[in-house]
Amino acid sequence: MTQKIGIIGTGGITEAHLEALASLPGVQICAIAGRNQGRAAKLAATYLPQQLLHFYESYESMLLKERLDAVFVTLTPQLHGEMEVALAQSVPAVFIEKPIANRLEPVLKAREAFKKAGTVVATGYMMRWQPGVIAAESSLREAAEVPVTLSGCWINPMPGASWWRQQALSGGQFVEQCTHIVDTAIVLAGPITEVSAMAARGFVRDVPDYDLDDALAVTVRTGAGGVGTFITGCYQAGGQTGRVGLELSSITRQFSFSGWRADLLLREGSNPPRKLAGLEREAIFRREDEAFLQAAAAGDASGLRSDYDSALETLAVTLAAVQSARDNRTVRLTELL
Results as ranks from 00 to 15, higher is better:
332 R>E: 08
214 D>L: 11
109 K>H: 12
14 T>P: 01
213 D>S: 08
203 F>I: 09
189 A>T: 07
55 F>Q: 02
76 T>V: 13
34 G>Y: 01
161 A>L: 14
30 C>G: 00
283 A>V: 10
329 R>Q: 08
220 V>Q: 01
139 S>M: 05
258 S>K: 14
176 E>C: 12
180 H>Y: 15
261 R>P: 01
267 R>F: 02
308 Y>C: 01
56 Y>I: 01
40 A>Y: 04
270 S>M: 09
83 M>N: 05
216 L>H: 03
81 G>D: 08
112 E>T: 12
102 N>E: 09
241 T>N: 05
72 F>M: 00
161 A>N: 12
168 A>L: 10
38 G>N: 10
99 P>Q: 09
163 W>A: 09
91 V>P: 02
56 Y>R: 01
84 E>H: 14
204 V>R: 11
180 H>W: 14
10 T>E: 04
142 E>S: 11
208 P>C: 07
41 A>E: 14
192 I>K: 07
262 A>P: 04
258 S>I: 15
26 G>C: 10
51 Q>E: 08
21 L>F: 04
235 Y>S: 10
139 S>E: 01
120 V>A: 10
50 Q>A: 15
40 A>G: 05
114 F>Y: 13
227 V>L: 12
202 G>I: 07
89 Q>N: 14
86 A>G: 05
178 C>K: 06
253 R>D: 08
293 L>D: 00
263 D>W: 07
202 G>M: 10
157 P>Y: 09
229 T>M: 09
138 S>G: 06
58 S>Y: 04
93 A>S: 15
242 G>V: 00
